[in-house]
Design a protein around this nucleic acid. Structure first.
Lengths: 209, 209
DNA sequence: TAGATTGTTAATCGATTAACAATC
DNA sequence: TAGATTGTTAATCGATTAACAATC
């Protein structure tokens, strides 16, 4: 599937295009020009055309873009049509909230297992999945081969856990812990979500904008 | 406080410097060169020196940087020493998890109120704060003038809520909703956290890296 | 002093914007 | 066909990296 080298900036804009196109679809609109889309999204029309043309010519001169077709294309580019199995490590406040709050299937994932090390949580059901003893992770992975792990455990516990998961074939991490996975495993895909960092950048802007 | 125009790329790296310096401090290390820090963080030494020199010369030739002093400087640059009052809108799974999970005081904020519109939640206590009826938001803000709002409510409910908060003097939003605040209010500070977008970029990379 | 490492200027690289010929 | 709008090349802008003189 790998189109040549698409820059991270472009990739990070794709989900936003996908969302806006979904909204336009819901509003009953069927076609749009790069200029109009740019006004709605606060980008330049040029950038939109450049971005899309990294992947192919989805528009038509004199007409613009067909919204449904373009959204479907972007969905495919993002791989939303080929969902990957994911396990959640850590069923604390954050892990539970993510499991309950995120529509994984619409984002290209299938959540198949939830693990924690606290005995008190074992068997508790979250979004239809029982919390399992992390001691049973090996067996579970050998039977179900998840390719992705969602890390909602403290930094100190993360490193051995990541080692184990990589050994078990996990190639992607959605990382909410502060352990720097990408630094240790440059070949796995890592998407970090660091709430603290995000809040601090807001703090900076509040004081300086 | 406003130093000239610092690029967003630089600002987004500051919290990570702050974290790494904290770790080094905890490891009992007291000084570091840009080269060694660059190796630990996976950056170039040049970039680190450029970044820091946006704000001042914190190092010493032939010696490097004093870790504690540098961390304190970055903390001040981020405004962590001048905490802002924040209210949380939406006490669902996500809102509750954030209230319980985030150490606001160490990130430059003070959480002073939690609001929801569901009667069943009123009075429930989260991290020492009672969930309040969103109908009482006006009065609460007039008495406590929060400057920041954390938006954990659905997109459809967000727009009127944001209007109200801006009217009440809120100038910063930590936005977990899909309503595009920055588009409507270009003059407020907005930090978006879009889990869905984040997950989809991970999906892309899993299929293409 | 000699060695190390910064602060800073200059060079490079990449991303965004502008322009326009191709074409629906 | 004429008008609109794309796809794409060229120009600009900004961010990263390299180099080195200043200096601790």
């Amino acid at each position: 599937m790998a189109t040549h080298n698409i820059s991270d900036s472009v990739i990070r804009r794709l989900p936003r295009y996908y969302r806006f196109l979904g909204d336009l679809h819901n509003a009953g609109i069927s076609r749009i020009s790069s200029r109009e889309l740019s006004e709605r999204m606060g980008l330049t029309a040029s950038q939109i055309r450049q971005d899309l043309n990294c992947f192919g010519g989805f528009g038509q001169q004199g007409y613009g873009y067909n919204i449904d077709l373009l959204q479907a294309e972007i969905g495919q580019i993002l791989g939303l049509d080929r969902p990957q199995n994911a396990v959640l490590l850590g069923a604390g406040n954050l892990g539970r909230a993510l499991a309950q709050h995120i529509d994984f299937s619409r984002r290209g994932f299938h959540l198949i297992g939830v693990f924690d090390r606290k005995e008190a949580l074992f068997g508790q059901v979250i979004r239809g999945l029982p919390v399992r003893d992390v001691a049973t992770l090996d067996d579970f992975c050998r039977d179900n081969y998840p390719s992705v792990a969602i890390m909602c455990i403290p930094k100190e516990e993360a490193e051995p856990m990541v080692d184990q998961l990589v050994r078990l074939g996990v190639t992607g991490f959605w990382n909410f812990s502060h352990f720097d996975i990408a630094m240790k495993y440059p070949n796995v895909s890592v998407e970090n979500v660091h709430f603290g960092d995000s809040l601090m950048t807001l703090s900076y802007r509040l004081h300086n904008d």
